[in-house]
Amino acid sequence: MLLIYCPYCEEERSELEFRHGGDAHIARPTNIADITDEEFAEFFFLRDNPKGLIFERWRHIHGCGRFFNAARDTVSDKFYASYKAGEPKPDLSAVHPATEKTVETYEATEGTAK
């Protein structure tokens, strides 16, 4: 079970108090009614699902109730940053290596065992 730092409560709390909220830094277009189908698909449906660093939303739903953003490594589950909604994406290049873009396939991981 994760231990998550809430930037509003200013301490780490059990994952039981939180709810995951999907990818962060995806702004709802202010002219949403006028965007194209492709733009809507990009905004609403398409996500990167990276192996490695991800910026994601959490809500401290059973705590202060606030939404906030966090940077987590999807492999190790280590959190690299936790910051209030509306704050810019922090630069983590110094503490976290660049995200691998490779897609993990059966052939790549189990190929030698075939």
């Binding site: 709802r28 939303r57 809500r59 109730g65 606030r66 939404f67 909604a85």
Partner: peptide, 8 residues
């Protein structure tokens, strides 16, 4: 509702 109110 909270999601939209707080984040959008």
């Amino acid at each position: 509702m909270e999601d939209y109110l707080q984040t959008e």
